[in-house]
Design a binder for these strands. Structure first.
Lengths: 113, 113
DNA sequence: CAATAAGTTCGATGGCCATCGAATAATTAG
DNA sequence: CTAATTATTCGATGGCCATCGAACTTATTG
């Protein structure tokens, strides 16, 4: 991965609020046992597959419930995370379905290797 | 390491120019074989120790030679990298002696583990 | 259809930040 | 001491960005 892509990823994670949002999603995707109380913030039965591609239903709504930011700001942060390639989101009716992008996770892990 | 420290590190690396400076120093410290032509950008004989704590002499000057930025801007970037805990610098007379902070490198490697 | 719910888009705002050149300080060489 | 070299500090500037509320769109429910 090129330097400019890394700086995009790091820029996306340089906002403390956005980092928090990303880690909420990441932990649900990759370490479902580590969730801190947010019992509902969990992939639905039958919607998850292998670790790392677990799909989060109603991600937007749950993030809104957990943070003191306006919905428009959170919408903006989701967009930035998508633009940096960190997450992928789909609309499902009125709701959001989203997952962490494994390629980006691998890139972060390979940085400084 | 706490989330707010991670966002500081990522903020420091979110500027493309600053990322480039950090990687120049990092590669000299940790992978001296990987240098791209900058033959002079190398720890002096007898000044280096174990990998990861290799000391870079005249880092500031060499970075200035390699980048199209004013010296004042580069000075600013060095300060930001220090504030984020990524590098440590000392003055040695008129020159700069600097090295990568292993603790920060470890933190980056442990992110998403 | 009407009402509610979920996200998006827009415009404004305040603040931070990358960059520069100039002035300054500190050190070394002649 | 003087001149040259090296890096810092300062003030200005232009641009980007996090945040908000309001208006809007789309989808669901009754």
């Amino acid at each position: 991965m090129e330097q400019s892509n890394y700086s995009k990823i790091f820029k996306a994670l340089s906002s403390e609020q956005r980092l928090k949002i990303f880690l909420m999603i990441y932990k649900q995707c990759c370490n479902p046992k580590d969730q801190q109380g947010g019992a509902e913030f969990k992939a639905e039965e039958g919607k998850s597959c292998c670790p790392g591609t677990r799909i989060i239903e109603k991600a937007f709504t749950h993030v809104c419930d957990c943070m003191k930011l306006s919905r428009s700001t959170i919408s903006h942060h989701f967009k930035e995370l998508q633009n940096a390639g960190l997450i992928t989101c789909e609309r499902d009716g009125r709701n959001y379905r989203c997952k962490v992008n494994e390629q980006a996770v691998k890139a972060i892990r390979d940085f400084l290797k």
